[in-house]
Write a protein that binds this DNA or RNA. Sequence first.
DNA 1: GAACAACGATGCTCTCCCGGTATCAGTGCA
DNA 2: TGCACTGATACCGGGAGAGCATCGTTGTTC
Lengths: 291, 291
Amino acid sequence: MFTLAQLTSFVAVAEELHFTRAAERLRMTQPPLSRQIRQLENDLGVQLLNRTNKSVRLTPAGRAFLIEARGILRQSENAALAVRQVSTGEAGSITIGFTAASAHSMLGTLLRTAREAVPLAEIVLREMVTRDQLAALADNSLDLGLIRPSVTGPDLRTRPAVREQLLAALPAGHALTAREGALRIADFHGQELLMYSPTEARYFHELLISIFRTAHVTPVYSQYLSQVHSILALVNWGLGVALVPEAAAQLRYADIVFKPVELPIPEPVELDLVWRRNNDNPALHTLLRHL
Amino acid sequence: MFTLAQLTSFVAVAEELHFTRAAERLRMTQPPLSRQIRQLENDLGVQLLNRTNKSVRLTPAGRAFLIEARGILRQSENAALAVRQVSTGEAGSITIGFTAASAHSMLGTLLRTAREAVPLAEIVLREMVTRDQLAALADNSLDLGLIRPSVTGPDLRTRPAVREQLLAALPAGHALTAREGALRIADFHGQELLMYSPTEARYFHELLISIFRTAHVTPVYSQYLSQVHSILALVNWGLGVALVPEAAAQLRYADIVFKPVELPIPEPVELDLVWRRNNDNPALHTLLRHL
DNA sequence: GAACAACGATGCTCTCCCGGTATCAGTGCA
DNA sequence: TGCACTGATACCGGGAGAGCATCGTTGTTC
């Protein structure tokens, strides 16, 4: 196979159609240039130039090869440039995990920031629950996660991203919808509450349990569900009330009324950014610096 | 700038993630391979691999560069292959000149043959009168011409391609259209004949002059035109009669009747293939071998 | 037509790069 | 703690490539 140096030599000769001038352009002398071209022709098994003592002309094969050679050289320069951009974090690829609910809150901000901070980078999005995101971070198939706060290993770093209110989601016509202003926790006593799954939505499950326990309020837990969407769908069918993060109110349902709830902590729902401490993706660090 | 050899080395290591095995695959020993990769990283100014004594892993930049490297190597192999095909005449580019009239006769056959003989070649077509084709052949901007016979230099080779009849083109309603069978030359005595230009359609001009002179027949030369199309357009307007090559009868005009003419030579119109004796386009020679 | 100028090819030399062998150094496992 | 494995390093030899000098050919000019 030929050499990139041979290609640059050939392109110079093909453009100058003059060995001595081409050699000057290449900052070398004419004899080794002649030999390089001959070597290239031998490697290819094809004559690229017709040389007489007074003129150098491209053969048809040479014309064809000139185009190819320019392409290969251009691609090589681009590759060198691109790989430098990836290494400095100007370009590259960032895979971001997010929970379904965060698609309505933090994800938009995050993507906007990414577009500004690393405009050349490709952003790959994957919707996953918190637990799966942590697994994906561990095996490096995720660069950054948007998760509910949870216990993480020592090689993960987290940063609070956003805090949200909890809103009550009530079926239209429900008695509590008539109330003026914010609801109180006590209002949920004895209500049929659509509850979060203790495994797949552990964070919300424990958050609600703790809120009600502290307030000595005991709703009726009728269903356990893992996704905010599913819970709202059931509220919409009139099958109970629910407490959902503020961002979920962006989903419009015909038969759901959202109302604020007075809580000891005004914005109890947290969302964290999480990434591996020793993640070596420079684009990720560029993004993190801008957050 | 890096080397293609470095790229193949890098691709091997990146695929094996193991220097010793990669070295075996490359039929070399491990130490020079390690140095090649280090050299490549130095050239790029970017770390491509994270190596510990127990594992080799790609950095994000390395992953990006792997894709680029594979692309460059593939393109290089294709270039080598393509240039060999051009040099053997399997592929390449053939520029063919043709006269407007020959588009209706020989050109179709020629293109069909070219498609079979050099299926990988690009055929570039240029419509030009004979005189311009000869000039283009001389400065190598044409590989092959379809011309009317004419005097050519010693560096051109010609070969008869096809012979055609001359047909009489008569305006509908003209007295001669009533005749049974073929016309004779004498029928043109005193007729208004649309004539070919002595400069731009020299071949037809001289052919007709010679035919009429030999037969001692003198038509009335009303107009001198260079293209068969133009002549037929005027016949269509009833402005005279004409003699045109057989192939032109493929053009359908509402008010033209074509009739055969009895001539001393039954197919007096010749069309020649012409090319430079020392044309170095291998694809051209492949095509000529099939004609 | 003879001398000259221009240009690519060739011969020779030297240097440096590349590949091989031997060996070192760090790490995971038994 | 020792062993096996793996990549890095030291050193050496051969060959490729660059430069210098020169040759051979060809077109030009007086």
